[in-house]
Every structure is written in structure tokens, then in C-alpha cells.
């Protein structure tokens, strides 16, 4: 069984500041790390591997230094890794990212199950997984919080809905995005670090992909464009209420209604 995990390198901190005058991100030494939600996806794949004798492959798209997250995945038990990198992929929005990844996944060979984290901590969109599934024309289930069973033909998963849990049996190949309470991710192992130190990372560039139409990648392949970024307005409300206890109770009820908590 082949399991492919999609991972991403994200800024090490979410504390980004914007220069109010120029409207640009203030440069702070952004250290990069693995998207925390992807650790759950890798853990899920490695657990299945331990049970079912599967091969775990990881793929990421990013600049050359994103290779670091593949090395980290090796330390958690991934077997093969691939970095999708090319100037032509730059400036990709969700759609172009999902498309490039779907092309890269196809290039990596057979897959039975694709696992993605719930979302990334920089984009926060949770959209790439379902879009990859669409491009690969396979079914997907989002918000998976438990795996009951997997065999050669299908996987039985629990999908976390707002008020219920749906147990679905999905035919393979398919894609799932996993919640963070699925398993506790293991720490990178020092033993595996030594063992995988020389394991190569496959590099896939634009010319390796089946679809060589530049209009489908990067900025050209991105329907959405960011017009500007700006800091959020701080919550500056600070009101003091005094008076008769009962009146305050009524006023508070009205306020809760206005704030849509009722």
C-alpha cells in the first residue's frame, strides 16, 4: 500500500507585524518549521505503515530550503520524499498549489491513500486537500478524527461534523484530511535522523510534470489575487457599567443578544 502525505513549511511564528505606513510585512527573522497540522497527517500515515506494511511518501511544494520538512518527515518514519520546486510555481494561490501538487503526486507514482493536515497555519484555508482530490478525480473526506479500519479496497473513517460524527467507508484511492485529535504525533527520532541522513530527496521541477502549460501554475494559474494586506483592527472596546444589579442583568442580556451569543 502506498500512502502519500502532503506537507508544507510555514513561518515559525504567527506573530507577523505590518508596517502601518507602507502596509508591508515587517521583516523579522522568520524561522521556518513544519506546519503543525501536518505532523498529525504524518503520524497517521506512519501508524498505518506500522500496521499494514505500507510505503509512506511525503511531498511538499516550496523553495529549495523547504527540503528541511522532508528531512523531518524522514525522522518520523516517512520512506520517500519529494520537493516540488520551480520559479514557475511562485505566487500560487490555493488552486494553483493544489494543481501543482496533484501533478507532483501523479509523478511520484502509485497512491492508495493521500493524507493532508486539517489546514496550514499561514494560509488557514483548509482548501488544498479537497482541491487535490478533485484534480486527481478521487473521493475525499475532510475532518477525519479516527480511522477504524483500512484494507486493500477501502478505508473506514470517522468524519467530525459540528453536532455529529459520520462513519464513512470510502473506496481507495482516496484523500483524507485529518483532525489534530486523531493521534499524538511522535517526536522526530534521533536514530532515524542518523539512519536517513543520506537519504535523498527527489526534486521535481516544472519540466518533470505531465502538464507543461505554464498558465496552469504559479501566479498565472491563480484566479485569486491579493490586493493588499493590513493589520486587523484591535479590539478596543472597554466599557464600564454601573447601576442597579437587575438593570445590569437586563442590559447584559441585551448585549449578549446583540453580540449574537444568544
Amino acid at each position: 500500500m502506498n500512502i502519500t502525505v502532503c506537507i508544507k513549511q510555514v513561518p515559525g511564528t504567527a506573530e507577523v507585524e505590518i508596517d502601518e505606513k507602507t502596509g508591508v510585512l515587517k521583516r523579522n527573522p522568520i524561522d521556518a518549521k513544519m506546519n503543525p497540522y501536518d505532523l498529525y497527517a504524518i503520524e497517521t500515515a506512519v501508524r498505518l505503515k506500522e500496521e499494514k506494511n505500507a510505503v509512506v511518501k511525503v511531498i511538499t511544494m516550496g523553495p529549495p530550503y523547504a527540503k528541511a520538512v522532508i528531512k523531518e518527515a524522514y525522522m518520523m518514519g516517512a520512506d520517500e520524499g519529494c520537493l516540488l520546486t520551480d520559479r514557475k510555481f511562485a505566487g500560487a494561490d490555493v488552486l494553483a498549489t493544489a494543481y501543482a501538487l496533484s501533478q507532483g503526486i501523479t509523478r511520484m507514482g502509485d497512491f492508495d491513500l493521500i493524507i493532508c493536515g486539517k489546514m496550514t497555519t499561514d494560509g488557514d484555508t483548509a482548501q488544498v486537500g479537497p482541491e487535490i482530490a478533485e484534480y486527481l478525480q478521487i473521493p475525499h473526506v475532510s475532518n477525519v478524527r479516527r480511522i477504524h479500519e483500512i484494507n486493500e479496497k477501502s478505508i473506514i473513517v470517522e468524519m467530525d461534523m459540528a453536532e455529529s460524527v459520520e462513519i464513512q467507508e470510502v473506496q481507495l484511492p482516496c484523500l483524507i484530511t485529518v483532525e489534530k485529535d486523531i493521534y499524538q504525533p511522535r517526536l522526530p527520532s534521533f536514530k532515524l535522523k542518523l539512519k536517513t541522513a543520506n537519504r535523498p530527496v527527489q526534486i521535481i521541477t516544472f519540466k518533470d510534470l505531465d502538464d507543461k502549460n505554464v498558465m496552469h501554475y504559479g501566479l498565472y494559474g491563480s484566479p485569486t489575487q491579493v490586493l493588499r494586506i493590513f493589520p486587523p483592527e484591535p479590539n478596543t472596546t472597554s466599557e464600564h457599567w454601573e447601576g442597579d444589579g437587575e438593570e445590569l442583568g437586563e442590559k447584559l442580556a441585551e448585549k449578549l443578544k446583540e453580540l449574537k451569543f444568544v
Binding site: 472597554s238 457599567w241 442597579d244 444589579g245 442583568g249 447584559l252 442580556a253
Partner: peptide, 24 residues
């Protein structure tokens, strides 16, 4: 606090609950 309510919880909360019930 965004809203600082200076009052006795034994006066404010029962009335608050009553009013919330009315909304329901």
C-alpha cells in the same frame, strides 16, 4: 475586560438568566 460590569453577581445573574429565557 471589554465589558466591566460593576455589580453583585447575586443580583445581576438571576435577572440575566430570566431575560435570556424570555429571548428563547
Amino acid at each position: 475586560a471589554h465589558y466591566a460590569i460593576i455589580g453583585d453577581i447575586y443580583e445581576v445573574i438571576p435577572r440575566l438568566i430570566e431575560k435570556l429565557k424570555e429571548f428563547k
